[in-house]
């Protein structure tokens, strides 16, 4: 079965990203397919590689990156939400004249259409948020 997962909140304040991560891992462990993980609203803050939690805390961002790498996850960050919150890849930096990028590995920035497509293509879509 094909799943899509939506993450609406940023890391560390709400449990949403943690829950979504454990859920996504369980989906994969059960042999299902993950069509896409879509990061929306403050959820785009899960995609900054500049995150540096204390050593005894989980690194929510790199955890997602590693999961994406190991399982070829398509992790999409909403472009409008990302622009508002300063989540930038090279293309966005060039377009908007920014002097730095911070998108973590395994994530890509794209439009809201990707969320609708995730709903159309997947058999199930689960939203994690506040």
């Amino acid at each position: 079965m094909k799943f899509s997962i939506v993450v609406n909140e940023g890391p560390y304040t709400h449990q949403a990203s943690d829950s979504a991560y454990h859920f996504t891992k369980a989906v994969l462990a059960k042999g299902h397919e993950v069509f896409r993980v879509f990061f929306y609203h403050d959820g785009v803050n899960n995609a900054t590689r500049l995150t540096t939690p204390p050593q005894d805390d989980r690194n929510i961002v790199s955890r997602w990156s590693k999961l994406a790498q190991g399982s070829e996850l398509d992790m999409v960050v909403c472009v409008a939400a990302a622009q508002r919150r300063g989540i930038v890849d090279e293309g966005e930096a060039k377009r908007n004249g920014k002097d730095a990028t911070n998108l973590a590995p395994g994530f890509r920035i794209s439009g809201l259409g990707q969320l609708i497509e995730a709903g159309i293509q997947a058999d199930r879509i689960v939203v994690f948020g506040d």
């Binding site: 929306y40 609203h41 409008a80 939400a81 439009g111 809201l112 259409g113 969320l115 609708i116 497509e117 709903g119 159309i120």
Partner: peptide, 19 residues
């Protein structure tokens, strides 16, 4: 909170996808 505005954004996109 921003959710009401974002909901409008998404519904307009979904409509553009002829859903």
């Amino acid at each position: 909170t921003i959710y009401a505005l974002e909901s409008l954004e998404v519904v307009l996109i979904a409509a553009a996808f002829d859903q």
